[in-house]
C-alpha cells in the first residue's frame, strides 16, 4: 500500500511518454501497425547519424577512460593524506556535473572564432580560424564531451584503485615480481571488470548526451538526438514523426544493453574489490 503513490506516479509520467514513443514508432499516423519507421532508420541519412553518435560515444569514452584512469592512478599513488587527492576528488565531483549549455559556452569562449585560446595562438603565429577546425563541429563536440568524461572516469575508478590491497603488492614483490609483472598479473586482472564497466558507463553517458552538442552546434548536429529533435519539432513533414520515435526506441535499446553490461561487470568487479 505504502508504495502505491510512487507506483502510480511512475506508471503515469514515465509510462505515458514511453508509450507514446513505442506506439508512435510502430504505427502509421492512421493507427495501423507498420514496420516502415524502423526500416527507414536503417537507410541514409539516419544510418550515418547513428554511426557518428556511436563514434563520438566510443571515442570520448576511450579518451576519457584512458586519461581518467591515468589521473586517478596519479592521485591514488600519491598517498591517502595527499592534498592532491582532496583537490582532484572534489574537482571531479564538481566537473562531472559541468555539462550542457555552460560547458558549450566555456568552449566557445576558449576555442571559438574569437575565443581566448584562439587569439593566444594567433599571437604565436597559428591561425586556428584558417584551418578546418571549428568548435561548432563534431570534433568540437568531442573535445567538450571529454571535459565531463574524464572527471566521471576518475569518480568511477578511484574506489576500485583504492580497493587494491597493499598486501597483494608486497606478496608479489616478495615473490620477486617486478612492477610490470605485478600490474600485468595482479592489478590489471583484478581491476579489469571495474575499468571496462566504467568505460561502458562513459559510453552510454556520451551516447545519450545532447545538451552540450545542442548549444554548441544546434539541432543541425549530425547526431541521433539532433535528428530526433528535428523530426519531432515539425521542421519536416508530419509523417516523419514516426521515424524520430523509432530512432528514440533504438537509442533506448543501445543504452539498455550498455547498462545491463555495466551491471554485470559491477557484480564481477565486486568479487575482489570491496
Amino acid at each position: 500500500m505504502g508504495i502505491l503513490p510512487f507506483a502510480l506516479y511512475v506508471l503515469l509520467f514515465l509510462g505515458l511518454p514511453l508509450y507514446e514513443v513505442l506506439y508512435g514508432a510502430i504505427t502509421t499516423s492512421g493507427g495501423s501497425l507498420t514496420w516502415y519507421n524502423f526500416s527507414q532508420t536503417f537507410h541514409k541519412p539516419y544510418t550515418s547519424d547513428f554511426l557518428s553518435s556511436l563514434r563520438i560515444a566510443l571515442e570520448t569514452s576511450l579518451i576519457g577512460g584512458v586519461f581518467g584512469l591515468w589521473l586517478a592512478c596519479a592521485v591514488v599513488t600519491a598517498g591517502p593524506r595527499s592534498p592532491l587527492r582532496r583537490i582532484v576528488g572534489s574537482g571531479s565531483a564538481v566537473l562531472a556535473y559541468f555539462a550542457g549549455v555552460p560547458l558549450a559556452f566555456a568552449f566557445i569562449a576558449t576555442l571559438g572564432r574569437y575565443g581566448e585560446f584562439t587569439i593566444l595562438l594567433q599571437h604565436i603565429g597559428i591561425n586556428l580560424n584558417a584551418t578546418s577546425f571549428t568548435i561548432s563541429s563534431l570534433t568540437g563536440v568531442e573535445l567538450a564531451y571529454v571535459y565531463f568524461q574524464i572527471p566521471l572516469m576518475v569518480l568511477l575508478v578511484t574506489p576500485a584503485l583504492e580497493g587494491l590491497r597493499p598486501e597483494w603488492r608486497e606478496a608479489a614483490t616478495g615473490l620477486g615480481a617486478s612492477t610490470f609483472r605485478y600490474i600485468r598479473h595482479v592489478a590489471a586482472p583484478v581491476l579489469a571488470p571495474a575499468i571496462i564497466g566504467a568505460v561502458l558507463l562513459l559510453f552510454g553517458n556520451a551516447f545519450a548526451a545532447y545538451a552540450t552538442a545542442y548549444a554548441l552546434v544546434g539541432d543541425t548536429v549530425q547526431l541521433v538526438p539532433g535528428t530526433i529533435q528535428n523530426l519531432m519539432s515539425g521542421n519536416v513533414l508530419v509523417d516523419e514523426n514516426g521515424i524520430g520515435l523509432a530512432l528514440g526506441v533504438e537509442m533506448i535499446v543501445v543504452i539498455a544493453v550498455v547498462m545491463i553490461g555495466y551491471a554485470a561487470l559491477q557484480r564481477r568487479a565486486g568479487r575482489w574489490l570491496q
Partner: peptide, 27 residues
C-alpha cells in the same frame, strides 16, 4: 525492484522523453 524502477529513467535519454512528450502534445 523499487531501486531498479527508480534507476530506469537513466536508460531513457532526455531527447527520447522529449520526443514522447512532443508526440503526446501533437495528439
Amino acid at each position: 525492484l523499487i531501486e531498479t524502477v527508480s534507476v530506469l529513467p537513466i536508460v531513457i535519454p532526455p531527447i527520447v522523453m522529449g520526443a514522447g512528450l512532443a508526440e503526446l502534445q501533437l495528439h
